[in-house]
Design a protein around this nucleic acid. Structure first.
Length: 643
RNA sequence: GCCGCAGUAACUCAGGGGUAGAGUAACUCAUUGGUAAUGAGUAAGCCGGCAGUUCGAAUCUGCCCUGUGGCACCA
């Protein structure tokens, strides 16, 4: 009699089966249809090939193609099929790695002539052919020597490198699909046909071998893959939706800003865009005033020596703009506001009684960002930080950090961002300061984090060169994440720049400096808001809040009266007396996303009323002039004024 | 910075070795209208820059600039 093991199913049922049974056999014991639909198995919560023998008691779930976990397999299998298609169509192309990723998969290839998008339809067609061949994925375990020889003979140098770097005790598995095979950890589904049809190759891109810019550049092909064609369709629609929200497009349509060749990565803010920008600054200034900050302003250019002292020159001089005048000095255009803040702190003798000392600055900084990184307002070379530096004692770190966290979250809420995640980044490889100082800074920040009771994730090695940091990541209306605010504990720069205060004991002490930014970059935050709201900014932020549109020229005079009434209450109002039909005016102002379109014709002029149409609605409501002025001026208040 | 793609009228885009094209916008005229496009007409361009090939280049080639999708970077 063969040995038995006990299988526990997700519903808690147990079953005694022969040792060595595999998932497929197990499934067919339950039902034929299940066996037919199974694609993999979850053994003790690890997803495995369904053909893998089960040799000990285990909890087991059989995965069908429509399960959530299947998606990753579909995508990974799809990557393999794409690699086969590419090697079939373009002999001599080397394969490297090809994982499943969010929404799809990619595969990196090494080929002298990179692929272009025009190659994609051909590859896609070949993939469909391969899938139709319905070959099983077959797993084999090879010895290191055997696998190295195989890939070396085939000229797959990258695979050889991968195998060489595998730890000696690791099993080397190979997956075959028909004649084609790939080094792969797995797992995979049963056969290529289970991939289905719901995939599409999306784009080609360059990518460094092993993500290291000193290595060769490979060609990456990205694809998206889904369980059903409906899901694929849905995904493509979502991409379209994101494109519609693109702040670069909306910024032009709404006449907010532009860029031009002479100033790469620097914004030309148009009047409407600048109005929005200023609304954000005013809001933030108000919140900071109430939180006990005092606002400062520091020089845009300072002698290079200051940046050498701070340590910025050593790490970032390549990315700093510099300028010189008739004297022989080299001035750096500030890439950060912190040294300036320290210089202000240093003026006059400070006592422990002055701490915490909260200095804010809407500082415009310049950084020579790599050309390939520039992206509309999201990544620019000249931007404004809502920066602040909190000088405090070590004992105050926890409380001050907690206060900053609360402030950030409260501010994000005012813009409709309720879903915020926090990342904790600790010491990077290249840094200044003793390890003992880092120990202290990290511990203090961690303690503050614990004190807030907020959830966070660890982000090892990603801290600033002078200290660990928290990063605040918010999720927008269509589920995209944006890193905005930051809080950094700095036990290094104040000392380097010679800041101190007189302690309780009468001795000089070096203060701790907390760097923090809430929106982060005002430019970037503006871009995020535009995309988050798809251009439909809330009334208080809308640079143009109302348009008075006339129906006939007979009522121009009354229209001006209406505009004047609104403007005198601070509502940003334009007037449209053009010789156009009202339908045309409605259409135009709707397209440019004006929140309130106020139509006036003979009827309104006679009754001293207005007809209001709000953006997003096709309803028209009639109000008395004074009533609309009152209600709009209430609506125009910022969240702070409303509180 | 690296790999790919793109740059033509204010905007969106077609064209492609031999008078530079469309739609929208602008301007002019007519029309004074009731909630997402009234009609007719006019004007508008160093076809990103510099070199080269050619009898001839917006078109082909090279270099550069800018943008763009990724990668790398992000104090």
């Amino acid at each position: 009699m063969s040995e038995k093991i006990t299988i526990t199913f997700p519903d808690g049922n147990k079953k005694e089966v022969d040792k060595g049974i595999n998932g497929l056999e197990l499934a067919s014991q339950i039902s034929k249809s299940l066996a037919k639909e199974s694609i993999a198995i979850k053994i003790n919560n690890d997803i495995k090939d369904i053909s893998l023998p089960i040799n000990s008691d285990a909890s087991v779930a059989i995965l069908k193609r429509d399960s959530e976990e299947a998606l990753e397999l579909i995508r990974h299998d799809c990557a393999h099929v794409m690699a086969e298609a590419v090697q079939e169509l373009y002999p001599g192309t080397q394969v490297t790695i090809g994982p499943a990723i969010e929404n799809g998969f990619y595969y990196d290839f090494a080929r002298d002539e990179p692929f272009t998008v025009s190659d994609l339809p051909k590859i896609e067609k070949k993939m469909h052919d391969i899938i139709q061949r319905n070959k099983n994925f077959i797993r084999e375990v090879w010895s290191k020597e055997e696998s190295i020889k195989h890939f070396k003979d085939k000229g797959e140098n990258y695979k050889v490198e991968l195998i060489n770097d595998l730890p000696d005790n690791e099993e080397i598995s190979i997956y075959k699909q028909g004649d084609w095979l790939d080094l792969c950890r797995g797992p995979h589904m049963v056969s290529t046909k289970q991939i289905g049809k719901a995939f599409k190759l999306m784009k080609v891109a360059g990518a460094y071998w092993r993500g290291d810019s000193s290595n060769a550049m490979l060609t990456r092909i990205y694809g998206t893959a889904w369980a059903t064609e409906k899901d694929l369709e849905q995904h493509l629609l979502q991409i379209e939706e994101a494109e519609k929200r693109d702040h670069r497009k909306l910024g032009r349509e709404m006449n907010l800003f532009h860029f031009q060749e002479e100033a790469p990565g620097a914004v030309f803010w148009h009047p409407k865009g600048w109005t929005l920008f200023q609304s954000l600054i005013n809001y933030m200034r108000n919140r900071q005033d109430k939180a006990g900050y005092v606002e400062t302003n520091t020089p845009d250019m300072m002698d290079k020596s200051l940046w050498e002292t701070s340590g910025h020159w050593d790490k970032f001089s390549d990315m700093m703009f510099r300028t010189e005048a008739k004297d022989d000095k080299i001035y750096a255009i500030k890439p950060m506001n912190c040294p300036g803040a320290v210089e202000i702190f240093k003026q006059g003798l400070k006592s422990y009684r002055d701490l915490p000392f909260l200095l804010s600055e809407f500082g415009k900084v310049h950084r020579y960002e790599p050309s390939g990184a520039l992206h509309g307002l999201m990544r620019v070379r000249a931007f404004t930080q809502d920066d602040a530096h909190i000088f405090c004692t070590e004992d105050q770190i926890t409380q001050e950090s907690k206060t900053v966290c609360d402030l950030i979250l409260s501010i994000y809420k005012d813009f409709g961002f309720d879903n915020v995640r926090i990342k904790f980044s600790d010491r990077p490889e290249k840094r200044v300061g003793e390890d003992s100082i880092w120990d202290k800074a990290e511990a203090a920040l961690m303690q503050a984090m614990e004190a807030t009771g907020l959830e966070y994730t660890l982000n090892p090695g990603e801290g600033a060169f002078y200290g660990p940091k928290l990063e605040f990541v918010l999720r927008d209306a269509i589920g995209r994440d944006w890193q905005c605010g930051t809080l950094q504990v700095d036990l290094n720069l104040p000392g380097r720049l010679g800041a101190n205060y007189i302690g309780e004991d009468g001795n000089k002490k070096i203060p701790v400096m907390l760097h923090r930014a809430l929106f982060g970059s005002l430019e970037r935050f503006t871009g995020i808001l535009i995309e988050h709201y798809a251009g439909h900014l809330p009334f208080w932020l809308s640079p143009l809040q109302a348009v008075v549109a006339t129906i006939t020229s007979d009522t121009d005079e009354y229209a001006y009266e209406v505009q004047k009434a609104l403007v005198s209450e601070g509502i940003r109002t334009e007037i449209d007396t053009r010789n156009e039909k009202i339908g045309y005016k409605i259409r135009e102002h709707s397209n440019s996303k004006v929140p309130a379109i106020i139509a006036v014709g003979k009827k309104e002029a006679q009754d001293k009323t207005v007809s209001v149409r709000r953006i997003g609605s096709s309803e028209t409501k009639t109000f008395k002039l004074e009533d609309i002025v009152n209600s709009l001026s209430k609506e125009a208040k910022s969240p702070i004024e409303k509180k």
